[in-house]
Design a protein around this nucleic acid. Structure first.
Lengths: 230, 230
DNA sequence: ATATATAAGTGTTTAAAATACACTTTTTTT
DNA sequence: AAAAAAAGTGTATTTTAAACACTTATATAT
């Protein structure tokens, strides 16, 4: 903001691309769309759209996610703005990447009605158009950091979950094995989970107790200076 | 990128605003400019400019910083993109914030010839225009996190510095007192500093040994898996 | 020349946190 | 009744972080 008028400045297209993470059967997943227009028609792409004059970027990200998946009230966070001059061969476009966290188990039907979008395991997702693979890498790095210092993992899990599911989620996010006893001990020391009487019987004969995240207790603890740190 | 043509999409002005940090006399400082055009003429502002069609954002940030300070080869990092609809009352403008780290002691003369820019102590900087204060907050948070995991602090110090200066820098960035012995012990355990025979006599009768950051050694150690962690 | 003032420099002890590690319980299936 | 499969549970060890106080060097004042 140096010039005395903005009139002669270049204007650009501003896109929002969403890296949508999900978690199912011990695997981190990503939601992709098959592009149905040129350039790069038919290739796999992040879900994206353009910022409109009357909305801010957060709103645009929410709108774009909702438009393609039907989902609302989804955790999203801005990651980075990508601006290589020729990143989109059709026209100069700057793109702001947002990541979103979705509990697939709860929302899957809704999503899969929509086409042509599809979940891929993060580890064997296809090559994406433009710089979208770089966007995904940045988003993973951000998700990883965030998961260590905020309880955002719960956004990826159903309301009720077993300790083993929670552990597998963190293993998937951090891409490393964790010790069962140490993990449970640490999480219990936070004292932000509610143990239910209910058991999940789907993964063993014995059954595993279900837990809920106690959002209010967490909020109170944070106010009192509690610092979530895996 | 959902529509079959980009033609009807809104275009916007894309600004870059720079949060320029410096360090002098045990204090973190920020470089501000007095705005010489409307709106908000005469108020203090971050140094900024608009993205041009033929450059990416990193290049724009470098150009804008260089234009107002004459400095090149400065450490910069993108922080966040601000997009509130009415953030600039003159016209819809989205702004990408970058922070920069400057060694004031070495570059000060060059900078201060330029006008009307001025260093302020971070702690008593004036109120800024638009959402620039929020930008500064975000940049400080980022600088703090970064300084804990990367040796970027050296960007703010002269080539040669004393251990006390280094400690005071970290105290300023983290906004907390550190124990002299623990700090030195930890830093020495990293083994990335070169102790010179030279002493700085400006702050005591005894004099304090000067050190240099060993960039090559640091790079080698990082390749071998070393992880800088304050 | 002696005393004083000022910052530099230096290790050890204690506390806290992270890590490593293995057996028992429950229940279904054979 | 035995086998199989996942759930559940506690302690000892190692590593890291934190707390802590005196000696050294030298310029300046007396």
């Amino acid at each position: 903001m140096i010039l005395s008028t903005y009139n002669k400045e270049d204007k650009v297209l501003l896109a929002v691309d969403c890296i949508i993470f999900g978690f199912l059967k011990d695997e981190l997943k990503i939601l992709l769309v098959q592009r149905d227009f040129e350039p790069e028609k038919g290739k796999w792409s992040l879900i994206g759209g353009f910022l409109k004059k009357e909305e801010n970027l957060d709103k645009a990200a929410i709108r774009i996610l909702h438009h393609l998946t039907g989902l609302k009230n989804i955790y999203m966070e801005q990651v980075y703005t990508f601006s290589k001059v020729d990143r989109d061969p059709a026209e100069r476009t700057i793109s702001v990447a947002y990541y979103a966290l979705i509990d697939i188990a709860t929302h899957d039907e809704k999503i899969l009605k929509q086409n042509p979008i599809q979940w891929f395991n993060l580890k064997n997702a296809p090559k994406l158009i433009f710089d979208h693979n770089r966007m995904v890498e940045k988003a993973i790095a951000r998700l990883r950091r965030r998961a260590l210092s905020k309880p955002i993992g719960f956004e990826l899990l159903p309301d009720k979950f077993t300790m083993r599911q929670l552990q597998k989620l963190y293993e998937a996010i951090l891409d490393s094995k964790l010790d069962k006893r140490n993990f449970i001990n640490k999480f219990n020391s936070f004292d932000i989970l509610i143990k239910l009487d209910e058991k999940d019987m789907s993964s063993s004969k014995k059954g595993a107790y279900l837990f809920k995240f106690d959002q209010e207790k967490y909020n109170r603890k944070v106010e009192d200076g509690f610092n979530f740190k895996i």
